[in-house]
Write a protein that binds this DNA or RNA. Structure first.
Lengths: 152, 152
DNA sequence: TGCTAATCGGAGCGATTCAATCCGATTTCT
DNA sequence: AGAAATCGGATTGAATCGCTCCGATTAGCA
């Protein structure tokens, strides 16, 4: 019950992109330094996000990328699905058919679908624009990323 | 964004336990045949569920186990947490402190906590008793488990 | 117009976690 | 007291994930 580290990093990276390069282009290196992510990881994330259509990249010297949509139109669900693929907590919770080999009527699957839709709605309810609004957290105002390489 | 296969199996196993051994004791072997799960897997699940206090096991010849609470008091969140541990979609989404090495104020963490609570509430809203109520699913009334060994 | 430099894009390797299986400890019935 | 059947933990193997490196592409400049 945990989404991948890449998806976690992607949310932080997109949040930084929405804050710093609003409209103007910025490159992966700048965002890597901004967020503290390793440069190769940031590059990999940019590739996936670009393939998903969330950002538009421009190659060559002086290139970079920019958000393809306004921050209010990009949700956590979009980012997570761009990196991890469709949000399906079980193999049968999605709307598509799954290769289920065991026979007999299933009492559980309809409930999984309901839970799955609820989870996706929770992720779709948070936009990049809302991430900009700072919710105070007195206990721990630190950054969420936990890179082992920085701990050592 | 997918919970482990063991947790998926555990839900099916507990659902079968609530249906078949309501009050009376049943053993892991019977539920394994009932659900189609491999016997070692069912045994492992029984161990974890017993350690979490969801079922009470009786050892020895003629032993078995029974639900320690009525089906209406056992939710999907209980089962998932018994198998996979606490429900935290990111390392910092839980209520406890996380070892975050990167400095700077975090704009994302408060939102993750909200999403995390929403997901947990969705899982806690489905009880074993509600699993008994059959929700019709005309498209695919099959069993959710997809065991590779049964496909071959 | 050719060259240089900087960037994105994809392929490969290592490490960690997870799933499945096996064997031993414990307990009840005969 | 012996034997059988069960739960409980430990081990092995595989798959996925995270990380890093290298090549392809393109704009800028002489």
């Amino acid at each position: 019950m945990r989404l991948s580290s890449l998806a976690d990093y992607a949310v932080v990276l997109m949040s930084a992109a929405a804050r710093h390069c609003g409209g103007m282009r910025c490159n992966a290196r700048a965002l890597a330094e901004e967020t503290g992510l390793p440069l190769p990881t940031a590059q990999k994330l940019v590739s996936k996000l670009s393939a998903a259509g969330l950002i538009e990249s421009v190659r060559g010297a002086g290139g970079g990328f920019r958000l393809s949509r306004p921050p209010a139109a990009i949700t956590l669900a979009d980012i997570v699905e761009a990196v991890d693929g469709p949000i399906t907590i079980t193999v049968c919770s999605g709307d598509h058919a799954s290769d289920c080999a065991i026979e007999g009527s299933c009492h559980v699957r309809p409930h999984w679908q309901i839970v799955n839709r609820t989870i996706r709605a929770a992720l779709a309810g948070v936009t990049l624009a809302s991430l900009g609004q700072h919710i105070p957290d007195p206990k721990r105002p630190e950054h969420p990323i936990n890179l082992k390489r920085t701990v050592s």
